[in-house]
Structures are given as structure tokens and as C-alpha cells.
Amino acid sequence: MTTFDDQFGERWVASMLATFDAQAADLGELDRQAGDGDFGTNISSAYRRAREEARKAQPESYSEWLTTVSRGFLGTGGTSGPLFGMFFRELARCTTSSAPTASELADGLANGLATVQRYGKAKVGHKTMVDALAPAALAMGQAVKDGHPDPLATAAAAAVDGARSTAAITARRGRAAYVGEVSRGVLDPGAVAMAMVIQTAHNAAMGTTDPAGSILVDPA
């Protein structure tokens, strides 16, 4: 059973920090294969900034915790930095309580998707973070509507499937678009990172701060 208690935001951020501490280098390696190689560094510096923000702001509520991550990314370069920043900003704004309900979180994901698409102009199939986020938002919304006991589990599974689907896609948006066919066969680091973000939300909802496992290994 999932719990969106008052410590949900804090656990989610802790789980993200643990995840990207461990996996930023692997994400950077993906970007080197089919991009410009700065993704790992950017995501590391975004979460380093989020840590500093948290130390300064002493966040308590869910919104305050998610805002530290949003500001961490908005203070980071590249194109994915500001897009992740605006995504987390929508999540931070999805509730006015100290923790969101599953329904508010579903709306937050949907609004985050809309914002990322508005700024990034990417669609599903363009080999970007949208390929993980769009199915996750859809699955979350449906699971909440169906009264699923663990809606974030279905969202996380959909995000991971979406991220894995990017290996078969030739990039249309983002840095990898410049290398075209070379990007085929390589997972999109933005989509993988987004899937990890949703997985860590699920971990937090399960009451832990465990990092997300690597999804870089093809299960097939």
C-alpha cells in the first residue's frame, strides 16, 4: 500500500539523490554515444544545486522539497536542464497540502508533461524524456481513475518501458537529432533519467529512500 505522508517529498528527493549519485556517469556515457556528452555532468550539477538549495531553504512540505530540485535544474545549463526544472516545478505546484494525493500527483505529471512539450516541442517517438513521461502520466491517470492501490507502480513500469523503447528510435529532437541514425540502438539518457525519477517516486511512496535500480540493462 502506498503512503503519501508528510515525508513523501523528502523521501522522493533523497531517493533521487541516491539514484543519480550512482548513475549519472552511466547516463553521461549514453549521451556520449549519441549526443554531446554533457548530460551526466548536467544532471550531477543539478542535484548538487538541489542539495545546496535544501541546505539553505530547510524544506518541510512536499512542495518545498520538490522546489529544491526544480531550482537545481533551472540553474543548470543545456536544454534538458531547464525542461526538467519546469517539469519539477509543475510537480511542486500540484498540491497546496504538505503531501499530494495520488490524484494530485497524477495531475502534476500530466501538467509536467504538457509543460515539457510546450517548451521542448517534442512528441512521443522523438527519442526524448517525453517517451518515458507521456506513458507514465497516462498510466498514472488511468490507475487513479481505476482506484488502483499502487498507481505509481503502474506509472513507473510504463516509464521504464517507454525509456527502453527509445533504443529502437532514431532521434528527432534534442542533441541526438544531429547524429541521426547513429543514435539508433542507444537508449535516450533523458528518457532513462525520467523513468528513474518516476521509479524513485514509487520508492518514496513505498516508504523507502532506496535508489532506483539501473534500467540500462535490457531485460530481454
Binding site: L74, G75, G77
Partner: peptide, 9 residues
């Protein structure tokens, strides 16, 4: 490289 959104803010 572009300045960041927070810098511009």
C-alpha cells in the same frame, strides 16, 4: 552557452 533560467530570473 546560454545563461541558465535562474540566472536570467
Amino acid at each position: 552557452a546560454s545563461p541558465t533560467a535562474l540566472q536570467l530570473h
